[in-house]
Design a binder for these strands. Sequence first.
DNA 1: TTTAATTCAGATAACCTTGTCCGATTAATT
DNA 2: AATTAATCGGACAAGGTTATCTGAATTAAA
Lengths: 144, 144
Amino acid sequence: MFSKACEYGIRAATFLASCSETGERKNLKQIAEACDAPEAFTAKILQILSKEDLISSIKGAFGGYEISTHKLKDIKLSHIVKAIDGDNIYKGCGLGLAQCNEKKPCPLHFQFKSIRDELKIMLESTSLWELAHELKDGTALLKR
Amino acid sequence: MFSKACEYGIRAATFLASCSETGERKNLKQIAEACDAPEAFTAKILQILSKEDLISSIKGAFGGYEISTHKLKDIKLSHIVKAIDGDNIYKGCGLGLAQCNEKKPCPLHFQFKSIRDELKIMLESTSLWELAHELKDGTALLKR
DNA sequence: TTTAATTCAGATAACCTTGTCCGATTAATT
DNA sequence: AATTAATCGGACAAGGTTATCTGAATTAAA
């Protein structure tokens, strides 16, 4: 479904969100550890999220990453996914046809449509704030 | 969503199904052309489908590929997808966690569940016969 | 001002997926 | 029996994704 990079990205953003609410800044090592993700690769992904202004990075000693508290409810999963994987996941044709639409559909077009739409709605309506709270509640986990 | 191999595989199987109903055997070249897929790569995919007994291959002159008519309604999309991509698409965790279930879910588990279930049901209930008929009707196309 | 802790950027390695090539095998036709 | 049209199987090439490494830049604290 998502690329590995995107999986790590969502995990990292969720963890960061859960810390940022209480003002805890985290560095690369802590994030990678908490997300059970490879450190150097996670660094690359955090760079992307930072450039897209979804998280903020603070350089230098005692630096790290954080998310502005006021953004937490505005940042949706769709923003993270789009930044890392692009939007092909709900725009592209299920069978990979260059052109596929209602007028000239692939044989799977209509069967796929409702699923892609549901996915889109889910990603666009789920906020980092929401995910972060599942972590804090202990209702959900990021490592196993 | 699906790998390129799987996209080609579904296209090829759909095309083959639409021909097999009228007893038309097709060879690699014809299939690749009809599906707008690279020939040599398509050959590999047809081999997989053949080994999984989803299509039958006939060697030698005037050979090619076909699908037993009586199987057309029984072969579901899920069979093709599982043969090529495996079943991670509806079994795996959306965030890539090794263990993720109702008891110990990832933060996205429940939001994903309905989508994955819907996808599973769609793949398991859509038959090659159904897709093939969309092609024949002209309601759907495989190339653009 | 030096040191230490950090992110950033670019190069590169490892691995997987995608895609090609070719010789061996098979089977129908001549 | 020879020829031709096909699949099969293995090796290999190309490209993309995943992952690592390293030196430069930045910033806070000592």
